[in-house]
Design a protein around this nucleic acid. Structure first.
Length: 400
RNA sequence: GGGUCGGUGCCCGAGUGGUUAAUGGGGGCGGACUGUAAAUCCGCUGGCUCUGCCUACGUUGGUUCAAAUCCAACCCGGCCCA
């Protein structure tokens, strides 16, 4: 089991998970396991899935997962790990994100396939923190603010760095830890799950529970998954993520490239594989991990196909019968010059970029290098069914 | 509110009247190499169906043949004082 927080006084039953479990059994009730997510982006990635896997384990053990959609706090933005003031997002955007999150977590799916168990009654509560936060009045907010000090806030790593470097900190950002801590009070959490970077916030939840006369929650802090760059944490804004919704091929091909330094973390945090039984060869280990993770999301069969396809594509055959994403020629006006084609088909962000890529020797059609950006194609007919390639990793099969 | 410094391309950060999308670094993308990657080396890193034409240095106006660079107002921020 991962990092437990707080280590605290071992004699204090309040701070021991085993004691919690025992007490729950004695009382004949399941524990309430809080996990809060802020719907600030549209996709859940593998970094999040560590937490959800743990939450699911609690569910399977008979406890109640209390999933808090931070629809209210998302509008403030968690300052954790941020070096700049986060842009506030709209209510509508938050709501849309929340819907996709639930879908990605497996709402409406049988529990065997879903990340969380949405089926078994009593195992899941989905709450939105606007339920209780929106209704707070000013005296209550002031009461919350009174429980923490500026010194405590500035001791938090993110804030102290920003303060030290002269980066603005808006006052409302101080409210974030308090509000998300108040969530623990609102749902009467026994245990809160979070990444190790959530230590401050989880601790704040304990303080507030104590303040409100509740038994304090047990914080379970799970390791942060490093991103594909092998250095920074997996985060959408850093662009080093593997999305849960990624198709098997791109999921697999991203994962098989995880750096040697990060591979063991991926194995232990994302799969049920035993490190001991895996091949020593780092390349083989990567493949095994990538296969297992892909399979856990898309099934064994799809994962195996992705592995085969990845080998074919990267192996250079380029035009194999692999499962290449399609790109429509419908938006392309013919005659089309090569650079325009690349951009119109969406494989390059702009026509200027396409021109550069072609000059740099990155573009291929059916494995043949396109060297002239101005090369002209007369009609869609001569391109249909062919595979357009950019670099080693990006392929599009052109369709009418 | 006063003083002061500052707002430059994805980010950081040079530049302080004049051939140029604007030094450098990071990141990103591409090429070579390799077990994929990393490391290393090389190239690219505003837009446009592009041998040219557009739009760019907080915003708006002004001075000038000419401004990211000068002036004014405004907006935003750091620090100090109150």
């Amino acid at each position: 089991m991962a990092d437990l927080f707080p280590a605290g006084d071992p004699g204090d039953p309040d701070q021991c998970l085993a004691a919690r479990l025992a007490a729950a059994t004695a009382e004949g009730r399941p524990l309430r396991i809080k996990l809060g997510i802020d719907p600030t982006g549209s996709d859940i990635h593998l970094g999040h899935s560590i937490l959800f896997r743990k939450l699911r384990a609690f569910q399977d053990a008979g406890h109640t997962a209390v999933l808090i959609i931070g629809d209210f706090t998302a509008r403030i933005g968690d300052p954790t790990g941020k070096s700049a003031t986060r842009v506030q997002i709209s209510k509508e955007q938050v709501e849309a994100n929340a819907t996709t999150y639930l879908k990605q977590l497996g709402q409406g799916q049988p529990k065997e396939q879903a990340l969380l168990d949405f089926e078994t009654s009593g195992r899941l509560e989905v709450r939105r923190n606007s339920e209780w936060l929106e209704g707070l009045d000013l005296p209550q907010v002031i009461g919350l603010l009174g429980t923490a000090t500026v010194g405590q806030m500035l001791a938090k790593d993110d804030f102290s760095k920003r303060y030290g470097s002269g980066t603005p900190i808006a006052l409302h950002e101080f409210l974030y830890p308090l509000l998300q801590g108040y969530d623990s009070v609102a749902v009467d959490a026994d245990v809160e799950l979070g990444g190790t970077d959530q230590k401050f916030n989880v601790a704040m939840g304990r303080d507030l529970q104590r303040h409100f006369g509740q038994r304090t929650q047990f914080g379970m802090l799970l390791p942060i998954l490093v991103g594909l760059d092998g250095v920074q944490k997996m985060s959408k804004s850093l662009g080093n993520t593997v999305g849960l919704e990624d198709d098997p091929l791109s999921m697999y091909s991203k994962l098989e490239k995880v750096g040697d330094g990060a591979i063991n973390d991926y194995v232990t945090l994302l799969t049920d594989l035993d490190l001991e039984t895996l091949p020593e060869n780092p390349r083989e280990k990567q493949k095994a991990m990538a296969l297992a993770v892909t399979a856990s999301r898309h099934g064994q069969e799809a994962a195996a196909k992705a592995q085969a396809d990845a080998a074919t594509l990267v192996g250079g055959a380029g035009d194999a019968a692999a499962d290449v994403p399609e790109a429509s020629l419908a938006a392309v006006n013919f005659p089309a010059k090569a650079f325009y084609l690349l951009s119109a088909v969406g494989i390059c962000a702009s026509s200027s970029e396409a021109r550069r890529q072609i000059k740099g020797g990155a573009a291929r059609l059916e494995g043949e290098k396109i060297s002239d950006p101005n090369q002209e194609f007369a009609s869609a007919a001569e391109l249909e069914g062919k595979v357009l390639q950019l670099g080693k990793k990006t392929f599009r099969r052109l369709v009418g």
